[in-house]
Design a protein around this nucleic acid. Sequence first.
DNA 1: CACCCGTATCTACTCGAGTCAACAGGCCAG
DNA 2: CTGGCCTGTTGACTCGAGTAGATACGGGTG
Lengths: 342, 342
Amino acid sequence: MDSMTTPAVQASRGPVTRKDVARYAGVSTAVVSYVVNGGPKKVAPATEAKVQDAIRVLGYRPNAAARALKLGSSETLGLVVPDISNPFFALFSHAVEDAAAALGYALVLGNSDGNLAKERRNIRNLAARQVDGVLLASVLFEPDLEVLETAEIPSVLLNQERDAPGFNSIGVDLAAGARIAVEHLIGHGHTNIGLAMGTNVSGATDGREVGWREALQEAGLPEGPIVYSAFTRPGGYTAGQRLLASVNRPTAIFATSDMQAIGLLRAVHEAGLSVPGQMAVASFDGSAESEYSWPPLTTVEQPVAAMAEAAVAALVGASRGEKPRHRIFPTTLHVRQSCGCP
Amino acid sequence: MDSMTTPAVQASRGPVTRKDVARYAGVSTAVVSYVVNGGPKKVAPATEAKVQDAIRVLGYRPNAAARALKLGSSETLGLVVPDISNPFFALFSHAVEDAAAALGYALVLGNSDGNLAKERRNIRNLAARQVDGVLLASVLFEPDLEVLETAEIPSVLLNQERDAPGFNSIGVDLAAGARIAVEHLIGHGHTNIGLAMGTNVSGATDGREVGWREALQEAGLPEGPIVYSAFTRPGGYTAGQRLLASVNRPTAIFATSDMQAIGLLRAVHEAGLSVPGQMAVASFDGSAESEYSWPPLTTVEQPVAAMAEAAVAALVGASRGEKPRHRIFPTTLHVRQSCGCP
DNA sequence: CACCCGTATCTACTCGAGTCAACAGGCCAG
DNA sequence: CTGGCCTGTTGACTCGAGTAGATACGGGTG
């Protein structure tokens, strides 16, 4: 009875190739190609029907490797991130996968684990696999472009503020984003605002630190205490402890990532202080986690989906000969309760 | 000066092929292959040196598509998850990527977004790309195996309790895990323990519900209220609101995922109740997020890394003809503060 | 000196799909 | 009735790498 509903599957041996379809449909292999790809030559409707039928009955699926070999494109993009289990990169990866899938591209993922050697290895690996482009969220503020250059693959640098000539890059305006967050905190009447700054392998100064400083200067306020630590929950936790212990304890803190803020909240809670009453907090990223912390975090949201789309578009464009460009996206302040708003 | 440190790159046109290397080294293309792959025939040391030199100078990188076509294997694994931005799957993906990379495999990622059609499309896509195996975390408790079967690819079903004959599967003992968590809650003296149960596309009963019920029965306690909602933060949030509003409000709740628990915590905080004082909470997964919620969550930890390794090993084994098997991993209770422990 | 054998290398075919030049057949104009 | 043209179809070559089978070479033995 089952055999009546499902077409007889040619279980025989090995995968079905174009040749099998051609034989079954009584046509040449070229026609099968024309039908599958809708060109470049036209096929008579009756013939097309026969071929479609054969494809369905035999369960034919074109071999992507052969296709990639002939066309010189694997319809695949590579994404290298420091750590996919970081919610921000997870969100970003999802957006990239969506954007890539919409254009028929698959996504190969690589984690560099904050390790430069691993980042390089990943890139080389992707290059050997003939990916059509790679999206790189480097562990460095300023990535070493040499590997990318020698690999001769279209690429997009993510989260880069600096313009790297000859490369596509996508980033957000970190300084402006930090500024609106700090200004919002100032608007709540805070005069001593600390900074929990994330650190990176390279020593370059991050735009968020600049934005924090600018906002304070413009308001004529003194700089609050700064603590440098990792862009992680534990990093934020220790940063929080140190900030709370500092001689002039701030009444508000700007954290440079949501994860840091989450860790920071824990430190504040453990110290028995109320948020935002005794300690206001604002952070950066706009991840889903920030909405469900307690209290919910006021955070600077990055337009992740738009950035992912732009990154994929740049890659696809590059394979068509478009020239690289540098795009900076604006951020928006997402006001919740950790800052003091009701 | 730069040209002194880096070898003269044959920038000419197009990528370098085996033929170019052969010509440059003055040997045949076969020898180049033998050198690159270390076999299947031996090459004289002097010749090998010449070839290695040519490879370095020309920057030769074997074309993975051609290799995949000839060998029928792309050294690539596919991973299909409902949503990579779910911290649990993000963590899992990272572990899978690590395990795959260690064996020289690349990982292609696909999100199904809780959508069965998209899940199928992803699988078909991976099949066409000649991946050597796919890891599937289905949106269904009981996945439809048909797509996998017709695709004829080694596969591993993730998070499956049920044994699907002819398929590899990897899961945790959901019932046992839930039971230890609920037993722990009972140990704190709770007699009315609610359940925030996650739902799935299929209607099958989840082991966690079974475990919760078993623990209560064994202790001679009545069943607390159950609320069904999505396995997400918003899902946990609404579940929390409904549980708090139920006629016999529980004094403790077991949530079937960390994300639900996070949402639930928010609902409890908003209601002005203290955790664990007025409402104790325990959950399932053991994600990093659970450690930094307020209060930190007592949660049932899944051995993610071990499961990922086993899954990848099963796939690689399958391509060597090993027969499929079903593995269930044990969970461990990670005690923190949300249950009432100090 | 002819013969055999082992080693090193090369030639040529293969994988599956894309596509172009060549070709068959039908139709209409002259 | 023939020539030309348009439509549909086909055979054959190509992409780059793996490798079996053929071949060249050198050294030792009878």
